[in-house]
Simulated assay, not measured.
Amino acid sequence: MSRIGPGPLVAVVGGSGAGKDTLLAGARDALGEEMVLVRRTITRPRGPGEDHDPVSEEEFRHLAAAGAFCTHWSAHGLLYGLPISLEEEARADRTVVVNASRSAVPDLVARSERPWVIRVSVSPEVRAARLRERGREDEADIAARLARADPAPAVRADLEIVNDRSIDAGVSALVAGIRAARVRPARIRSAPQRLGSGARR
């Protein structure tokens, strides 16, 4: 596996319903060419508020075998992949931002020259309400997502955004966090900073 850099790699993580897609879209609009937001490939049709490349499982496995992904993983019965093109963007010293599963973060952190992990969190009650609003899962699936254990408990976040207020506040916090990856390349080893924000999906 090749190293990713010298541009920083920002991995945004958080449970389903935390509001990552909304905040990432807002940060992309606010930062423009300051960042590259990587589109994931997922074995799921595109839904409201999502920005990914939908493929079948067969197509996904063909792409993986052909080396089309920088990394890929499975979660919730789906396959997810990040394109190999993100390595080229990082080599050009651009700030690369990915919506990553927690299970994919250890590999990304190990390979990146300047990794930066941002966790988006929200209360279980708000997460459950957002999951119901988006209408992708039934009650059993929602309960399973809420009960899912952290697949990478050893991975520390450099910044935690408590996404419990307005969309604008959440986006502002994420924009600040992404810019911090550029000016503070070394990973923070102490407890992550917590920023209050907020978003509804």
Rank of each mutant, 00 (worst) to 15 (best):
A154K: 09
G26A: 04
G77M: 00
L108I: 07
N99V: 05
S112Q: 01
A65E: 15
R61S: 14
V55R: 10
A64K: 06
S16E: 03
E139P: 10
T41K: 14
G15V: 01
H62R: 15
G81T: 09
F60L: 08
E125A: 15
F69Y: 15
D29E: 14
P115R: 09
F69A: 14
L108F: 12
S112E: 01
R28N: 00
R132W: 03
A110W: 00
L108E: 07
P153H: 08
S103M: 07
S112C: 04
R28S: 10
E133M: 06
L131N: 11
P106M: 06
D138K: 12
K20I: 06
W73R: 13
L78P: 04
A65F: 10
E133Y: 07
L79M: 14
R61C: 11
V126R: 12
A152Q: 07
P48S: 13
D93A: 15
P115T: 05
E137C: 11
A25L: 00
G77F: 02
Y80A: 13
L82Q: 11
V38G: 13
S101I: 03
L37C: 12
A157K: 02
L131I: 10
A140N: 07
C70R: 10
S85F: 05
D150T: 08
L79R: 15
M35H: 01
G17T: 00
E50A: 14
G17Y: 01
P124K: 01
G26K: 01
W73C: 12
E87S: 05
E139G: 12
R132Y: 04
V109K: 08
E113L: 14
S123I: 00
A157R: 02
S123Y: 01
R145L: 09
L24G: 09
A154M: 08
R61Q: 14
A68V: 00
D107I: 02
D141C: 08
A144E: 12
D107G: 05
R130K: 00
P115E: 06
D138T: 08
A92I: 00
D93I: 03
E139T: 11
A152V: 05
H62A: 15
E34G: 15
P124E: 03
E59I: 11
G49C: 04
V55F: 11
